[in-house]
Write a protein that binds this DNA or RNA. Structure first.
Lengths: 401, 401
DNA sequence: CGACTAAGTTCAATCTCTTAACTTACTTGC
DNA sequence: GCAAGTAAGTTAAGAGATTGAACTTAGTCG
């Protein structure tokens, strides 16, 4: 099951058509800043008149702004169009195992302000209250009357029931069946717009694809390697959709079996990927206590042989995991994030080497799937959640466009 | 990358809107045969007037037919609408490792005629010529002037380049980079409509979802266990899309690694799922020659201990593979097909038992993902390819609606 | 048999896109 | 420096699709 915005009725009236065309114009400018009305007309297969009217209304509502006059190629020069980053704000947040991350960002994905608050795991209620307080701070700064708030997206470390906003499980927080937005809402009645929540890796994946400009990959997979290991897959460059699965379990790659009959995982099964590569398995292998920050504890010890061996083995497992994703979903691009990427080459080299050595075996092509490592992925999921808010407005039933 | 029909321009004019509404009406009747115009109006959020006009034109063009008068609930009784199965025909074919399968079927997926022709692997050219000849037979019977041909879909045993109709690789046929439709076309100039080709498991998955009526699962995964092992994932009950991957490698689950450092696979990597469960690995383990039919050879020997052991081990690997798919893509429903399902319990019980025992570990829910085994999947892929033709016409840019 | 209810049709009104003419603004050539 | 040329963007009349309301049709119920 994937995000389907509204799509309940694929039919529509004239008003629907008008919104469709407005959103197509907005999407084109979002993807290719600086387009002229004439460019849009040719790319969207609309007439100049329709585009003119659509742009007019989007300018008026503060979605677009006119930019510089472009170089003429013989005739009247076109007027560049850009997203108007001044009139709207999106809020995104991530509830992580070790802290809260918040961003306020613009239509183009530019982060206006971000905040990272360390926090030891506590109850959903306390977490919600603290998050709401921090969000209030951001709202005070950025809702100055000049900007309209489009909504809030919250990323959470566990599977979310598709269709309804319930966090099914967050093993590393000890949470189960939490309606987190409902906990947040009483403290944030002022925050208007669309509210949504999603799994952290899925939000991250979405943001990495959605806020990009220029040539957009057809699909993108984000692999989040932290305390646990998860992934998110986004497909469709025109209308990016996040694959959720019927129970929200899509992307629970930490619990794919890599070693039949291997070690026991906390899920009860044996040989899960997480028993080989994850924050908790590395802690277990090296005897690092929960209270210590894993990365801070390990960075000074990277030369120790047992650390190197542990990370190399974890890295090899990660490489296999990436290859398996390549042969299962074959994304156009893979992005690797999460706190473990900060461990650098001792963990990542074995993974990337294995992936590169084996990814072309089947087809024998020279075409390589780009694999990008994000060293600092602190705000990636929070920003991705904000991206999901924007997408739900542009593609959804909202009448803001 | 997934099938996107056209979707190049998400914008549209009045003509586009009209087609969208026609296709929404057709889809509703397809999914729920016997709907009345009034039902359609309420479900599609259209007015009675619009639905009336749309149904009129679909009746006229032979897509729909009026059925019985429904029971009244106090007022004028509604007239049931059904697909008109008399006026169109879809052709589907599968090129398998050991033979050709062909079907002619109706809009509702009913198979008018099917044919299975055994064939030892040969060149693409010879295969295409034979397939064309067999298709001519079907065309003679079913294109009697009363039916219009909507097109031909061909399913092939290997990854297909997304966007362009090229079979990248068919290891078990020894083919590489074959434009199979181009080989077929000279022999079938009479076959009008949409031509397309796809991977066998993907076509099968699509057909299993698309031709279903009533409650449609949000997604469906078809696992094809034969000489090799592959899968196809279809997502979206409204607009089902097949996930292809950027290189067409999505669903190449036979080459996911299940046993790091395990046996060498023909792809050159070690520990691929196919080294544990596949027609070829079972042949290798039991010393069954290529010339023999694997199923015919094994069915009389199912009581032999070494056969039982081999099949049990293969089944266990298949179970892990299914669980990994559950935790990677979490389809709403899994369908297991391919020739190996004919081996029955000795292979399947270990697989299904492992899957059932472990699928709910993470969430602890009682919700089970339905897993259906198709014992005779001979024509599933061919019929699925025909379904893809229909979908490309209903959702695509065609002007037949 | 008449009142009631709901399905389906008809038609003027409405709304959006389109076509085509027009204006604007810059480049090019003389 | 100026006129011709070219392309961007705007305007207004026209075409086409959906809508809403009134109407017709075809049953049920009392």
């Amino acid at each position: 099951m994937s995000t389907s915005y509204q799509q309940q009725h694929k039919a529509g009236d004239l008003h629907f058509l008008k919104r469709l065309n407005r959103s197509a114009i907005l999407e084109l400018v979002r993807r290719t800043p600086g387009l002229t009305r004439a460019d849009i007309a040719s790319q969207a297969q609309l007439t100049k008149a329709t585009v003119g009217a659509g742009v007019q209304s989007l300018l008026h509502q503060g979605w677009l702004r006119e930019g510089e006059l472009l170089k003429s190629s013989g005739g009247r020069p076109g007027r560049a169009l850009h997203l108007n980053d001044e009139r709207h704000v999106l809020f995104g947040a991530e509830v992580g195992v070790h802290g809260l991350r918040l961003v306020a960002c613009t239509l183009s994905g530019q982060v206006l302000e971000s905040h990272h608050e360390h926090l030891v795991p506590t109850t959903p209620e306390v977490t919600a209250e603290l998050l709401a307080e921090l969000l209030h701070g951001l709202m005070r700064t950025h809702l100055d009357g000049n900007r309209r708030c489009l909504g809030l997206g919250v990323a959470l470390p566990g599977p979310i029931a598709p269709g309804k906003p319930v966090l099914r499980l967050a093993p590393n927080l000890g949470w189960r069946d939490i309606r987190f937005l409902d906990l947040l809402r009483p403290h944030l009645s002022r925050l208007e717009g669309t509210w949504l929540m999603d799994n952290e890796a899925k939000s991250a994946a979405f943001g990495e694809l959605y806020f990009r400009t220029g040539n957009i990959p057809e699909s993108l997979m984000y692999v989040s390697a932290g305390t646990g290991i998860g992934s998110g897959m986004v497909e469709g460059s025109h209308l990016p959709l996040v694959a959720r699965g019927i129970q929200g379990l899509a992307g629970e790659i930490g619990h794919t079996v890599l070693q039949p009959g291997g070690l026991y995982c906390h899920c009860g099964n044996r040989g899960c990927a997480e028993t080989l590569v994850s924050g908790w398995s590395i802690r277990a292998a090296l005897g690092i206590a929960e209270e210590e920050d894993l990365i801070e504890a390990l960075l000074p010890r990277l030369n120790e042989p047992d650390v190197q061996t542990t990370l190399r083995r974890a890295g090899e497992a990660l490489g296999i995991l990436l290859l398996n994703l390549h042969h299962t979903q074959n994304p156009s691009e893979i992005v690797l994030g999460g706190s473990l990427t900060q461990l650098g080459a001792p963990l990542l080299s074995p993974a990337l080497d294995y992936f590169k050595a084996n990814q072309s075996r089947l087809l024998g092509t020279t075409q390589q799937v780009p694999l990008r490592v994000i060293e600092d992925s602190t705000f990636v999921a929070a920003r991705g959640a904000a991206a999901q808010v924007l997408a739900s407005i542009i593609h959804g039933p909202s009448d803001l466009i």
